[in-house]
Simulated assay, not measured.
Amino acid sequence: YAGLDVHAVDFTAAARAPDPLAADPPFQPSFEDRPGAPDRVYASVDDATFERLVALWAKALDAAGAARADLLHLHHLTPIHEAALRHFPHVPRVGHIHGTELAMLDRIRAGAPAGWRYADRWAERMRRWAQSCDRLLVLSPEAVARVPAELGVDPDRVVWAPNGFDPQAFDRRPASPPERRAPGLPPARAPRPEARPAPGPRSRRTVPSPTVGSGSVTCRSPTPPPSSSPTRGSSSSTGPKMGR
């Protein structure tokens, strides 16, 4: 973030609190329900806690100078949108949809788990926030097609904005074979030596037969040209000889 005027909200202490959501500032909820994680799923958060989250973001936005901003670019559909609507309604908003919020809405529509007591309220809020944005940025063409119906927004306000990167910091380079292997696998072992017949003029060898239990298949060299003398180990017969 070098060169940017960053106004950070520190949740370190909240993450370690006995009840992270009751801390000051309250630890931010999640669109995913992960037992034991400090961030509870939004759909389980009650109205009083929702108001605390809105108050937190109203204060943070004010400190960052939101009232004087040309626009607010807000990631995800979270209570920061409610704070912007209530306290800075004159500032245009661009919402950025990353997909996890859509996954939570999908699960609510399919039937929210028992612990998601406030699922319907959160679904209504998230759709209202999306509908009040001047533009919605999404990460894929599939999301461009999906988001209008999912969130009830005008398709003309949904814009495909792929994730970018800094080519000065990230660039391609050839990967060595160990780097190309799948993550988490042990290092590749050196290949085993391959069994090969001993060098020499003899081409006759015996290998176990796949069809005769105790027999063998005798492989013979092709018949030499008429002008050549037969070499040791060759035969005038070109077919395999099977015997016991």
Rank of each mutant, 00 (worst) to 15 (best):
R127V: 03
R192E: 15
K241A: 14
T223C: 06
S229A: 14
L4R: 14
P178V: 06
R157D: 07
T223R: 15
P191S: 09
N163E: 12
R172P: 09
D156C: 12
R52A: 08
T100P: 03
A149M: 04
S237Y: 10
S221F: 08
D134Y: 10
D19A: 15
S235T: 05
H90E: 06
V41F: 12
V147M: 08
H96A: 08
P187A: 12
R128E: 11
S229K: 13
E124M: 02
L137I: 03
D154K: 03
L136F: 06
I80N: 08
A14N: 10
Q131Y: 03
F31T: 01
A119E: 05
P225C: 11
T231K: 13
E179T: 08
R157S: 10
L56P: 00
A67W: 00
A198I: 12
F88V: 01
Y42N: 05
A110S: 10
R109V: 11
G239F: 08
K59A: 14
R16C: 13
R205H: 14
L185I: 14
A112P: 00
A8L: 10
T223D: 08
E51S: 05
R232K: 14
G239K: 08
A69L: 00
P230L: 04
H76A: 05
P38K: 14
D120Y: 02
L53Q: 11
A195L: 12
F11Q: 11
D166R: 02
D171F: 15
N163P: 07
P29D: 02
V153M: 00
A145P: 01
P162H: 02
V9R: 02
T238D: 07
S44A: 14
M126Y: 01
L72P: 01
E51A: 07
S237E: 12
G164H: 04
T100I: 08
